[in-house]
Amino acid sequence: MPLFPVPAPEFLKRLPGYYRRWELAELLLPDRYYYLEAAGRHADGEELFTVYAQSGAAARAEGPLQ
């Protein structure tokens, strides 16, 4: 599976906190770019992720994803 380049830092903003896999469905919105990064494990062994998201202003300026 090919890896896609990471977008420029000014394009994505990090959401505060660390998220479990099952919490991601509550965060993600349609028609936005996201970058997820492994951030280790919680004390209970669950994987944690950091989430970088396209800002709302950038999403409105560019329109929906193709």
Rank of each mutant, 00 (worst) to 15 (best):
A58D: 14
M1C: 08
G63Q: 13
G40I: 08
R41M: 00
V6Q: 05
P9N: 10
V6L: 08
A8I: 08
R21D: 02
R20F: 02
G40N: 07
A25M: 06
Q66D: 13
T50Q: 04
A43K: 14
P30M: 05
P5D: 12
L12M: 14
L65N: 13
A39E: 07
Q66K: 11
L3W: 04
A39V: 12
Y18A: 00
A53V: 13
A53R: 09
R60V: 15
A8C: 04
R60E: 15
G40E: 04
R21Y: 06
P5G: 13
A43M: 05
R14N: 02
D44H: 08
L28G: 11
E62Y: 02
M1H: 08
L3C: 01
L36I: 15
R21V: 06
A25R: 14
D31I: 02
L15D: 07
P30F: 00
V6C: 09
Y33V: 15
E23H: 13
G63D: 14
E10I: 02
L65F: 05
Y19T: 10
R14H: 01
L27S: 01
L48P: 13
Y52N: 04
Y52E: 09
K13I: 10
A53K: 03
A61N: 12
P30G: 12
Y19L: 02
V6Y: 00
A38Y: 04
Y33H: 01
L12F: 09
A59M: 06
A25F: 03
V6K: 00
L15C: 09
Y52Q: 09
P30Q: 08
R41W: 01
L27Y: 02
W22D: 11
L28F: 11
A43G: 03
V51S: 01
G63L: 03
Y35P: 06
V6M: 03
P30A: 09
E37H: 12
G56D: 12
R20Y: 07
E62A: 15
Y52H: 12
Q66L: 14
Q54S: 01
A61C: 06
A38E: 08
A58M: 13
P64K: 05
Y34C: 02
L36H: 10
L29A: 15
A38T: 14
P2S: 00
Y18T: 14
E23Y: 07
V6F: 07
L15W: 05
Q66A: 15
G17W: 09
Y18N: 11
P30L: 05
Y35T: 13
F49Q: 12
P2G: 01
G45K: 00
A58H: 13
E46H: 07
V6D: 04
E47Y: 04
L27H: 06
A8W: 06
R20A: 09
A39M: 02
S55G: 15
R20H: 05
Y52R: 13
G40F: 06
K13H: 08
A59L: 05
W22K: 10
A53P: 00
A8L: 06
H42C: 11
Y52L: 08
G17C: 08
L28C: 14
E62P: 13
L36C: 10
G63E: 07
R21T: 09
G40T: 05
P30T: 12
P64N: 00
P9M: 01
A61R: 15
P7Y: 03
L29G: 00
P30K: 02
G40C: 09
Y35Q: 02
A39C: 09
R60D: 14
G63H: 03
L12I: 12
E46L: 08
G63N: 11
R14K: 01
